[in-house]
Design a binder for these strands. Sequence first.
DNA 1: GGCCAGAATCGAATCGATTCGATCGGTGTG
DNA 2: CACACCGATCGAATCGATTCGATTCTGGCC
Lengths: 308, 308
Amino acid sequence: MTAARELNYFGPDPRARSLRQGRSGIVGVIIEDRVLNSFRDPMTLAALDGISQELGEGSGMLLLTAVGDGESTIQSAVFDAAIFMGCSPHLARSIEIMRQRNIPMVAIEGQAFDGVLAVSLDNREAARRIAQVVHDLGHTRVATVTLPLDALRSLRPLSEEIVAGATTAVSIDRLEGARDVFPDLDGVVAASSSSDDGLEAGLRLLTGSVSSRPTAILAQSDLLAVGVIRAAEQLGLAVPADLTVVGFDGARIEGFSDYQLTTMKQPATEKGRAAGAAVTALLAGEPASDVSFASVLRMGNTAGPVPG
Amino acid sequence: MTAARELNYFGPDPRARSLRQGRSGIVGVIIEDRVLNSFRDPMTLAALDGISQELGEGSGMLLLTAVGDGESTIQSAVFDAAIFMGCSPHLARSIEIMRQRNIPMVAIEGQAFDGVLAVSLDNREAARRIAQVVHDLGHTRVATVTLPLDALRSLRPLSEEIVAGATTAVSIDRLEGARDVFPDLDGVVAASSSSDDGLEAGLRLLTGSVSSRPTAILAQSDLLAVGVIRAAEQLGLAVPADLTVVGFDGARIEGFSDYQLTTMKQPATEKGRAAGAAVTALLAGEPASDVSFASVLRMGNTAGPVPG
DNA sequence: GGCCAGAATCGAATCGATTCGATCGGTGTG
DNA sequence: CACACCGATCGAATCGATTCGATTCTGGCC
């Protein structure tokens, strides 16, 4: 020990250790967007927190943004397992590389991929359930505000063309669920999941003649729903008297306490924990299987019968 | 190439490569709190985004939570340089380890540490400036809502005992700056930087007799200020007619557009970029020096003259 | 005192890429 | 034709810890 101190030796070199053991204790977390956008979403953040809870002390999370080619980092970085936050076709190449490297992969939400363990939510079923609630209240003029369907980040009207070229499984599933109840459901695609984008989307949907204006709006996230409610307020519409708004996520939203949002509550932290646990199991050589979570309907006070 | 393919060889092994080269292309980002709490703060998130911008493709960010002993991960993880998000005495041991390992370190905000490059803000000076604005408006009954001063996360009255045992440099500096103008400044310590905690703090400060109630509140973050304004609204106080509220940060806050907050705007993303650039320089063997940023006063409409 | 099991110590091989020095092959010039 | 020079190819050493097999040491027991 004294000799070690004299020689200025301070513990094993992580690099050498990881080479020899074939383990680094690092789990790669791959996000598709840039950091700022990804982590603004409370669900993503909660999932990340869940992952870190489950991985615990022994291991760190390596944040990799899979923008553009992005392979450089993914190919050269040291990590034992990968967790994808959302899984779109853009990742095909990255997934191929990891498969060849024999790196276990887990995806939280998103398209199913061969060799990638899926931690998913009953998006379609949950969207259908809450749409059914709105339907049962008697609404027929219904519109939706969807999360981004592809890489483009801008507000635009929902078109079949966009749907056909959509890559974000979550948004697609939730849209399909809503359309199971309202087959002709139309609306807008939001630029991102934020209340400001929801506000913009809400204004777009709600400015129009009273007779054509929707009486209910299905937002694909709570942040969007909050924005829509703010839009309604700006236009002098009362919620839920004049307009029914429902969300999705069950997020606790800062500074939004006047209403109790009617929404589908999803276990975001648990999704992260499940992903972390799956990764741990896979690394230990134990078998692991897909995990699917169910959302719970939370009746708030933002949905009511058709006005008039 | 064909031979390589036949042998199932897919590029160099990152572990071996990092051992030989002594470089891994990974930068450790050390946060003191758990993920969920750290990244809820828009300033921290912006800084993280700035870091990732600057590091660019070649390298990833390894998220390390330095909770408790936490050394296990810090000691065993592979990374070339470290960026601390806030730098408190709790990190002394971790810093010691890295220094011995010869790992360059950069700290965004926080206490100065030997061998740790500082990227900092003019917290004290900025706090003094905005306090002066409030002072010049004639306010004398002034209170503050500070960010957490230590590891304890709960709302409590500001006491000299707490100040004496404080570890969070940012909060201390901002408090001192405010006290440069209002020497006897009193108030409460918030549980965290959120509008909900600000609301709670605001309610605590504003419920009392009209004669003893403060006419101005200096919040140490914009989120806290927003909460205080919501508290004022709940109590039927108009801002800024009945109560002046100023913040700190210059954050864009979701769903808060009724007011334009009077605050000190700080360049959060730039802080992150500076940290990233410093790390890059240090790794390249180039010299780098401390960076200090200045905040800019943004006059909004939440500060006004003393009522009555 | 001798022998053996078990513990402790030691040396060598390994992980996989990189890097350096040393050949080897080829071209160009005197 | 020979020599020098440049690039390409090759082999060996290196990075630092771990692991395995072998050797040495210790103690207990006959």
